[in-house]
Nucleic acid binder design. Structure first.
Lengths: 115, 115
DNA sequence: TGGCTATTTGGCAAAATAGGCAAATAGATG
DNA sequence: CATCTATTTGCCTATTTTGCCAAATAGCCA
């Protein structure tokens, strides 16, 4: 069991960092945008609608996880997706989330089986 | 831009729920175990080494996200992975996390380029 | 150099998450 | 029904994450 504790502290812990980076609606939306083309911070900020400092922090979470990279062009910093395989992953997540949503609707609308 | 805000509140928000469920070392470790076979709570608890109530809460996060399902057998509850595609996804995450780790080691050991 | 634009960082308060203990619940079984 | 085992829930505290504002940086250009 301490065995497993150690394991958690290495492989799973590191992987969780990457997954955590994806675990926020704003960051998912950013990843979605970046999957289409590289975009600069100011454009992302416009699309998201939060304060630019907030967006910048989200971007730095993505960068630290290793999911994205940056390129400077003049004054602007462009972010780009580093690992396209993330997109397949996103398909899988989309599937799970759609199924889950449908099931929740069923549970709510059909009959409150829980007292 | 409010457009995007709305989008965040629906699709990306729901997907983030699923990803958040995966974004914890303990839960990743549970998913890894479940990928091999269905296991009951008490066995998972033994492997993880946390309090059973803690493990139970992690399991309920996974269940609410739609990633796992349960089956009762006698008075034990077995958890099982609902969506095998998660495993392919994990390969991708593993790749990103390994690359990120290597790069961090490079940054630290070779030369502190940041002042 | 000095001012300009784009971006990041620091500090802080609010909200969300994690983990342990004790109590509650759900079936199984005598 | 009483009790036992397996699991979940409630409550509480500690930690982490978010998001905003103000201030600091970084490169560009006159």
């Amino acid at each position: 069991m301490n065995d497993m504790k150690n394991k958690i502290n290495t492989k799973f812990f590191r992987q969780a960092v990457v997954i955590k980076a994806l675990a926020h609606p704003t960051r998912l939306s950013i990843v979605d945008m970046l999957s289409k083309r590289n975009i600069c911070v100011c454009e992302i900020t416009k699309a998201i609608g939060n304060d630019i400092s907030t967006v910048s922090k989200h971007l730095s979470v993505l960068k630290n996880s290793g999911l994205v990279d940056i390129t400077r062009k003049g004054n602007q910093i462009f972010y780009n997706l580093k690992c396209p395989c993330i997109l397949e992953f996103m398909n899988c997540i989309a599937k799970v989330s759609k199924t889950a949503a449908k099931e929740k609707i069923k549970q709510i609308s059909c009959c409150d089986r829980k007292k």
